[in-house]
Deep mutational scan, measured.
Amino acid sequence: MSGNGNAAATAEENSPKMRVIRVGTRKSQLARIQTDSVVATLKASYPGLQFEIIAMSTTGDKILDTALSKIGEKSLFTKELEHALEKNEVDLVVHSLKDLPTVLPPGFTIGAICKRENPHDAVVFHPKFVGKTLETLPEKSVVGTSSLRRAAQLQRKFPHLEFRSIRGNLNTRLRKLDEQQEFSAIILATAGLQRMGWHNRVGQILHPEECMYAVGQGALGVEVRAKDQDILDLVGVLHDPETLLRCIAERAFLRHLEGGCSVPVAVHTAMKDGQLYLTGGVWSLDGSDSIQETMQATIHVPAQHEDGPEDDPQLVGITARNIPRGPQLAAQNLGISLANLLLSKGAKNILDVARQLNDAH
């Protein structure tokens, strides 16, 4: 009898209710805020589980004197976190989706994509230029951005401005803007500013005609071990179906173009009346040469937790077992079709030249 009692006690200790789920994140304040929001949602869904947040620095956090596009290494903000995932030191990792490459290392998958916040870019102005827009900034004003995508589009749109690289986390960039006289304004992701509670610093939100956004911008991705079915089931509740389908289309477009950090590629997606609209573009580094096109596809946005595919093969690095396969494939095909259209119009040449120029500098 006593033996059975011990077995029952052991089973209770090993039951999922007692389990601590370890969540990996970057150390920056924004990353911690984003991770806290994901953990809060998981806690609400699984009140019996405990969650421990483990923060670590990544290569991208450490190399702050070089433009991201020049470092010449993929997975700048993800490699150390993936290493911890691989060694079973954490069970899942919360990322900004735009930091996750469209091809993940073997053994990993994006197990959830959370509801997207505003994906557009924002302009934050130096205190002396508050009330201005990019259009009304004085001639030769210097605007800071760490992104080739932003610089290429904005140089084309605002030729009277000069664009220079600015690195560091959000706090560091804002301090550089406010305390030094080098920059009249800087460009940042609206979602990051909003998550930090800095709505009052948003001086201008850039519309798609001015600057399309990065693939996955404004959404959070939760990376897990691809074979860890328990954790895949656990994080599945975080999937937002519309965000998922938009981001599958965007990531398929980028992957098929073979774009990345070192080339200016941008997108804009919208879901309306059962249609998914995808606009994508590529630019030369100075913005003088560009190709942009829009395509659409009829896609039914499923309700969360309709029964999805059981075999769960990944699409552009994403596993969404609780979302039907048909809409996911339709979104992926839309991204591939748009990429093929741009490639047929000469996108590869623009991107190759951009890559060579970026590598040469």
Rank of each mutant, 00 (worst) to 15 (best):
20 V>A: 09
21 I>P: 05
21 I>S: 01
24 G>P: 01
28 S>C: 04
35 T>E: 01
37 S>Y: 05
37 S>E: 10
37 S>P: 06
43 K>A: 09
44 A>L: 10
45 S>L: 08
45 S>E: 10
48 G>F: 07
55 A>H: 12
58 T>S: 10
62 K>H: 01
63 I>M: 13
64 L>H: 15
67 A>K: 15
67 A>T: 14
70 K>V: 13
75 S>R: 12
75 S>H: 08
78 T>I: 14
82 E>D: 10
86 E>R: 13
88 N>Y: 12
89 E>D: 12
90 V>E: 06
91 D>A: 08
92 L>S: 04
96 S>R: 03
98 K>L: 01
103 V>L: 08
108 F>E: 15
110 I>W: 01
116 R>K: 03
117 E>C: 13
117 E>R: 07
118 N>R: 11
118 N>V: 12
118 N>W: 10
121 D>V: 01
123 V>K: 01
126 H>A: 10
128 K>H: 11
129 F>P: 01
134 L>P: 04
136 T>Q: 10
137 L>R: 05
142 V>Y: 10
142 V>D: 09
143 V>A: 13
146 S>A: 09
147 S>V: 01
147 S>W: 07
156 R>Q: 12
157 K>D: 08
162 E>A: 07
165 S>Q: 12
165 S>W: 05
166 I>Y: 07
170 L>M: 13
172 T>S: 09
174 L>Y: 09
174 L>C: 12
176 K>A: 08
179 E>R: 09
184 S>N: 13
191 A>G: 06
193 L>M: 14
194 Q>E: 06
194 Q>P: 10
196 M>E: 05
197 G>A: 04
198 W>M: 15
200 N>W: 13
204 Q>W: 01
205 I>P: 01
205 I>A: 08
206 L>C: 10
206 L>W: 04
207 H>D: 05
211 C>W: 07
212 M>D: 01
214 A>R: 01
219 A>E: 05
221 G>A: 07
225 R>Q: 01
227 K>G: 04
232 L>G: 13
237 V>C: 04
238 L>K: 01
246 R>H: 05
249 A>I: 01
257 L>R: 15
262 S>E: 15
266 A>C: 01
276 L>C: 11
282 V>I: 06
283 W>V: 01
284 S>E: 01
288 S>C: 11
292 Q>I: 15
293 E>S: 12
294 T>K: 03
294 T>I: 13
297 A>L: 05
297 A>I: 01
297 A>S: 06
308 G>N: 13
308 G>Q: 15
309 P>L: 13
314 Q>M: 01
314 Q>T: 10
314 Q>E: 14
319 T>W: 01
326 G>F: 01
329 L>C: 01
333 N>K: 14
334 L>M: 13
334 L>F: 10
338 L>H: 01
340 N>Q: 15
343 L>F: 10
353 V>P: 08
354 A>I: 01
354 A>D: 15
358 N>G: 04
